[in-house]
């Protein structure tokens, strides 16, 4: 006679094992969905403006506040009658470019700081990491706005400013990884063989830290897109008439009652892009570095 025993959590190990596989699969699916969303968005923004009949800057006062799906302006038009879909695609170019570029810069800074700190450890390492902690004490939007307010806002400066506030996580991840790798045999062997510090750091150790860097960088794209949206929404990022997903929402609040799509649509594009990168990052973390998983 087989007997049921009970021990909560109510889910059994076998069902749990099955469910765990399912959970893996679902997250895998989410990552694929994220990747799909990113590819579609990138293609749309890159190619779309060449195909779409409307120009993002063309003012057409007759069609101002055209509602979505009611006219040839498929996603409607803004207060000046500019086609929203065309603007969203051009804005996407800007936002995605800033996202990728800021990620690249912050990854380089973070990797550099993290590698130095992790490799040398001691006073240098702890000083660098305390510096990272100190920068993290500043709420990122505050720091971002303060820096952005000092510069002439354009694509380049905004990217730099975002990168300057987003490199710390990468530094932490890399530092931890390099610190744990430093004592391993191959690093010691290289040292004994007389390899230079720089060689050991960047040729022996760093390649072993690629997985967590890739994960952190992917999540950093999401973060950079969000930060761009915030700073542009608040008026200190990308300046009109250049559209970005963030600055398109800039004046949307005043039209919320009459033309809510002006606020809703750019937000949905931001969410799609950010969710996409977050899903992919989460999936990569699952695949490459399960230790980092908190779920």
């Amino acid at each position: 006679m087989a007997v049921a025993t009970e021990t909560p959590p109510r889910v059994s190990p076998a069902r749990r094992a099955r469910s765990r596989a399912l959970a893996r699969f679902v997250r895998h699916r989410l990552a694929l969905f994220g990747l799909g969303a990113i590819i579609v968005l990138v293609l749309l923004c890159a190619v779309g403006p060449y195909i779409w009949p409307y120009n993002d800057l063309r003012i057409d006062i007759r069609h101002r506040f055209a509602e979505p799906f009611m006219s040839a302006h498929i996603l409607g038009a803004d207060a000046l009658g500019r086609d929203l879909f065309a603007r969203l695609m051009i804005a996407g170019r800007v936002s995605l470019t800033v996202g990728f570029a800021a990620m690249a810069i912050s990854t380089v800074i973070g990797t550099f700081v993290g590698t130095i700190a992790g490799y040398f450890g001691g006073a240098i390492g702890s000083m660098l990491m305390r510096f990272v902690d100190a920068v993290l004490c500043f709420p990122s939007i505050f720091l971002l706005l303060a820096l952005a307010a000092f510069v002439q806002p354009n694509l380049f400066t905004i990217t730099l400013v975002i990168a300057a506030t987003a490199w710390m996580e990468v530094a932490r991840v890399v530092e931890a990884q390099i610190r744990s790798l430093r004592e391993r045999d191959f690093a010691l062997a290289a040292k004994v063989l007389g390899a230079s510090d720089a060689h050991i750091m960047f040729h022996e150790l760093l390649p072993n830290a690629v997985a967590p860097i890739v994960v952190a960088s992917t999540l950093n794209v999401a973060r950079a897109i969000l930060l761009e949206a915030y700073v542009s929404f608040l008026g200190y990022g990308i300046q009109p008439p250049t559209p970005s997903w963030g600055n398109m929402l800039n004046n949307a609040q005043e039209y919320l009652a009459t033309a809510p799509w002006l606020a809703l649509l750019p937000g949905l594009f931001i969410i799609l892009a950010v969710t996409g990168f977050n899903f992919v990052g989460d999936g990569l973390r699952d695949a490459l570095d399960p230790r980092l998983d908190i779920t």
Binding site: A229, G267, I271, D282
Partner: peptide
């Protein structure tokens, strides 16, 4: 939770107001 972390706060604010 993953989606919530991807929503810009200001946009969510506008949606709530709307």
């Amino acid at each position: 939770a993953m989606i919530a972390l991807s929503i810009p706060t200001f946009w969510f604010g506008l949606v709530v107001i709307y």
